[in-house]
Design a protein around this nucleic acid. Structure first.
Length: 970
DNA sequence: CAGTGAGCGAGCTTCCGCTTGACTT
């Protein structure tokens, strides 16, 4: 399987070409033409096979069958040494991709090959979108059929649609394939070039990508908005009014909205800084024009004002000054697509995106619903008829829309390869009818889909909204206007079947079926105020993203696809960028660092419009107006014909991750200034370090530090909390007092992980008159790292005292007279006798090993390090056919490796010590040699590694890579 | 962020988008 996507030539077809597939003619031998149809989904294959009859064999590819290699292990030997093997794309040679059959798809491919043998024609019936076109092309490239091949497309799975599609095929659209390949390569380059920058500058194993990085950025930006948010306080007056004994309802609530000519401020009148919004010129003008001299000013009520007004309105006459009534109509919502299904299942059933999709998959596979990964709200004609028939049956004629409703909502970048998500079949089964076969999540989700689909073909809801103004004059002379509004629904229409939930219900954000009744009121009518309550309110920060809210936002930006919405969330959770607090997605401090770096140095790549721009460019490739290579040249090298994109303007991705790498200062990136506008706390930074995030500030030239708890959400870190945290670590967690010394024992988190130490009493101040030149050496407190079995939360005083008792004198070596001690160190527990040391296998041995056992251990040769006896090889191999050198497998600190005395190469995933062949060993050694020549005797420069990574971390920064002992938090 | 003794073959991490079982507990 070589490179070169366009070189094969055999498959390049005219875009959009279409002709009738001959169907009636048979083969020369007289039997009818047999055709193999390949679709993507096995369920779909089963479904359409009966529609096509016996002359068709229907199989499925089960999604993509080939892809770029995931990593070095997947690269065929032939390309292993290539400089671009890591990317899987030969960037210097037309961006030729290297495709391999995905390992788990090998069996699928051989099954398809087998099926191909018994047919006369191949119909590639993968989905009618960009990815589907590419899958078709990969099938062609992989199967290399010697029979005629046609492309078959259909958008709905009904017998007529399928039969029509089989009759009306076209050729493969190579331009569309090119667009997909461009997308694939772009994502690979972005992901595999930018992620390593994060490994070097923030933390290993992190990742960046076109989709996940924007998702993370959205969540971090929202958190910043919450952090910066300042709440505003405002007051109004709630009135309970009485319309007299005849009225129903007799009483109703109203709210103070105007004082004289000034409007009373509500939450909407404040910005995120807690300040009143400046009225826009246009609005002020318009208001003036309409209301003449009224309503031009804004009045923010303070508590005292509100109380005073309420007081002076007591017992004053209240009169209805206006009644305005308007018709209320609501149209049904479109049928579900993936994003809206996830949103509603999230709100109504509290399902995560993943749970929704798992359940939907089961419903699909069991034939209860149509395909669940779709960006279309279109219903087939049969589905519309089914929905209408069912609505009629359940609710009667009057509830069904006069004519079929078709929803053509345009989602950004929608590909519309499938129908909307709806109950399957030409007549729908009610939830009650499938209850016996389906339960739990699946039943509830089906019910949701069924209701929504039925409702989409029903009539508008109709009713009336009424706005009433009531005026009274306060004892102090102000004219106070109260407002109330009511909504009555006279004809529920579709609301009878389905009402969409709202994320957070507030006065301005009510469900569509919410009703509030006002009594019949007429202008001039007198009312009595039963209650007048001054009411305090405060504005709220923007709420955090929930899973469905994030999916909605991504969809609006055209980022991600129905098949990936759930996995995007999984990715950012897995990377530790985000954690869940109830339903809310909270960013981690690492996410702040990563977004910091990306915004600062890769701004074009995390721009919210990046994907939208890419989609436009892909469209122009798909339509044949632009070329794949030109576009990628611009993106990667910042050169070529189409170099107008923002990334190209910045010099291209290669430059951004290469030459510009040195400009990225790790210390700056990993420092988050929390309160930049607070003069007292603007020196407080969160630092994201190897050992997890911590707080730091410099006071009088001295650094104060404090650990941050994992469950502290960034917006909860206020100056007060910071101050509190700074005061804690100095003390650590108190465990008690050492009965021997009387010193207090504390457990703390340190540079090398958790440890215990003692608090020494302050040294006595020097006595009067004595002017000692030199203070006595400050005594050092004893310290001890926690054993692996211990944790900071559970360690006891006894444990701590045991640790502080180290090193333990095991005894005296009778031969040398040297003392043998047991202690815990950098590399774990060990014995020490003079300068000679031996590792212990178990931390418990620190306290239990006897002199006898210790002497026995010293009799053994040193296991590791200089002076250690050479280890016998794990296994002897033959000679390397290419060099003639004898090869052996040895065990090393990174696991087993093969060596010929000069080069060493680790065994890879899938290699075993027992089964490694000479050929494989030779191959591994050859690979190693290709990458780097065997090491010379001269030791490498100590700073080489640091300069290679381009790290510009200042010397003051803690050495980040010096310890392997504790893994970073999480 | 505490300070506690050696020295030593790297290799791998990572993207997005299309689809489901095959694995083990």
């Amino acid at each position: 399987m070589a490179t070169g996507t366009t070189s094969s030539g055999t498959t390049r077809g005219k875009a959009g070409g279409s002709r009738r597939t001959p169907t009636s003619t048979g083969t020369a031998s007289g039997r009818p033409t047999r055709r193999l149809v390949i679709v993507e989904s096995p369920t779909k294959a089963k479904k359409i096979a009966p529609y096509l009859g016996n002359d068709y064999v229907v199989e499925s590819s089960v999604g993509h069958i080939r892809d770029l290699p995931r990593g070095a292990a997947d690269v065929p030997a032939k390309y292993k040494g290539e400089p671009w093997a890591r990317l899987g794309v030969d960037v210097d040679n037309q961006f030729s991709p290297l495709y391999i059959v995905t390992p788990e798809k090998k069996s699928t491919v051989s099954e398809l090959r087998e099926a191909l043998k018994s047919v006369d024609e191949l119909l590639l019936a993968t989905d009618p979108d960009r990815e589907g076109e590419a899958i078709a092309w990969h099938l062609l490239e992989t199967l290399k059929p010697k029979i005629p091949v046609r492309r078959m497309v259909f958008h709905e799975i009904t017998e007529s649609a399928i039969r029509a599609a089989a009759e009306n095929t076209r050729e493969l659209d190579q331009d569309l394939v090119d667009a997909q390949e461009t997308r694939r390569i772009l994502d690979r380059l972005y992901g595999y070039e930018v992620s390593p920058v994060l490994w070097k500058k923030v933390m290993p194993k992190l990742s960046a990508g076109r989709v996940q990085s924007v998702a993370t950025r959205l969540i971090v930006e929202r958190e910043w908005a919450r952090i910066r948010f300042t709440s505003a306080e405002y007051w109004d007056i709630g009135a309970q009014l009485d319309a007299g004994a005849e009225a129903t309802p007799r009483q109703f609530g109203a709210r103070l909205t105007q004082i004289d000519d000034d409007r009373v401020a509500t939450g909407r009148d404040f910005d995120s800084d807690g300040k009143p919004k400046a009225p826009t010129g246009a609005r002020a003008q318009r208001t003036d024009a309409r209301l003449g001299d009224a309503g031009s000013g804004l009045r923010i009520l303070a508590e005292a004002d509100a109380r005073r007004l309420a007081e002076s309105l007591q017992d004053q006459a209240m009169t209805v000054s206006s009644v305005e009534s308007k018709p209320y109509t609501r149209k049904p919502y479109p049928p579900f697509m993936t994003s809206t299904l996830q949103q509603e299942a999230g709100r109504k059933l509290r399902f995560s995106s993943e749970r929704t999709m798992r359940s939907a998959q089961r419903l699909y596979e069991n034939g209860h619903i149509t395909y669940m990964r779709t960006d279309s709200t279109t219903l087939s004609d049969t589905a519309i008829q089914a929905a209408r028939a069912q609505a009629r049956e359940l609710y009667g004629d009057r509830y069904v829309a006069d004519s079929p409703r078709q929803y053509t909502r345009k989602v950004k970048n929608a590909q519309e390869a499938h129908e909307a998500i709806r109950p399957a079949g030409e007549s729908f089964r009610t939830p009650g009818e499938i209850a016996r076969e389906v339960d739990g999540d699946d039943f509830r989700l089906y019910e949701l889909i069924w209701q929504r689909t039925i409702a989409s073909q029903m009539n508008d809801a109709r009713g009336t909204t009424v706005s009433v103004r009531i005026t009274g004059t306060a004892g102090t002379g102000e004219a106070c206007t109260f407002s109330a509004s009511g909504r009555t629904i006279t004809f529920p229409g579709f609301l009878k079947a389905y009402v969409e939930s709202v994320e957070d219900e507030s006065p301005g954000n009510q469900a569509d079926d919410a009703e509030s009744r006002l009594p019949e009121l007429t202008e001039g009518q007198a009312l009595t105020a039963v209650e007048l309550d001054p009411d305090g309110h405060s504005t709220n920060p923007p709420s955090r993203f929930t899973e469905p809210a994030l999916v909605k936002q991504l969809e609006e930006l055209g980022i991600g696809r129905p098949s990936t919405y759930a996995s995007i969330i999984k990715t950012i959770l897995d990377r530790g960028y985000v954690w869940k607090k109830g339903a809310a997605l909270v960013p981690s401090w690492v996410a702040f660092s990563v977004v910091n770096l990306l915004e600062e140095h890769f701004g074009q790549l995390v721009d919210y419009d990046f994907t939208a721009g890419m989609e436009d460019d892909l469209d122009s490739i798909a339509s044949g107006h632009d070329s794949r290579v030109d576009w990628l040249n611009g993106f990667y090298f910042g050169a070529g014909k189409s170099a107008e994109s923002s990334v190209a303007q910045a010099g291209g991705l290669k430059k951004l991750v290469g030459a510009n790498l040195e400009e990225i200062d790790a210390r700056t990136v990993n420092s988050i200034t929390m309160f930049p506008n607070d003069p007292q706390y603007d020196n407080v930074v969160v630092r994201v370090g190897r050992y997890g995030p911590y707080l730091e500030r410099i006071v009088d030239g001295e650094s104060q530090r404090a650990n941050l708890k994992d469950d502290l959400a960034p917006d909860e870190l206020t100056p007060e909390i910071a101050e509190q945290l700074f005061s804690v670590p100095q003390e650590g967690r108190k465990l008690g007092t050492d009965p021997v010394t009387g010193h207090e024992i504390v457990a703390k988190e340190g540079r090398f992980g958790p440890y215990v130490t003692e608090l020494l009493p302050d040294p006595e101040p020097p006595a009067d008159g004595t002017t000692k030149k030199k203070a006595p050496a400050k005594p050092k407190p004893r310290t001890g790292s926690l054993l692996k079995t211990m944790s900071l939360d559970t360690i006891t005083l006894d444990d701590a005292l045991k640790l502080l008792s180290l090193p333990r004198v095991v005894g005296t070596d009778p031969d040398s007279g040297d003392e043998i001690t047991a202690q815990n160190g950098r590399y774990g527990p060990y014995l020490k006798r003079g300068t000679d040391s031996r590792s212990l296998s178990d931390e418990e041995q620190l306290f239990t090993v006897t002199l006898e056992q210790a002497l026995e251990i010293y009799k053994q040769p040193k296991q590791r390090g200089r002076g250690a006896a050479a280890q016998p090889p794990l296994r002897e191999l033959g000679t390397d056919p290419s060099t003639g050198q004898k090869m052996v497998i040895k065990d090393g600190r990174f696991g087993p490796y093969v060596t010929d005395g000069e080069s060493n190469a680790s065994l890879r995933k899938g290699d075993s010590v027992e089964q490694l062949t000479d050929e494989r060993a030779s191959e591994l050694l050859a690979e190693r040699r290709a990458k780097a020549p065997p090491k010379k005797k001269a030791p490498a420069k100590r700073t080489a590694a640091a300069s290679k990574t381009g790290t510009t971390t200042s010397k003051k920064a803690p050495a980040k890579r010096t310890t392997t002992r504790k893994t970073p938090a999480k």
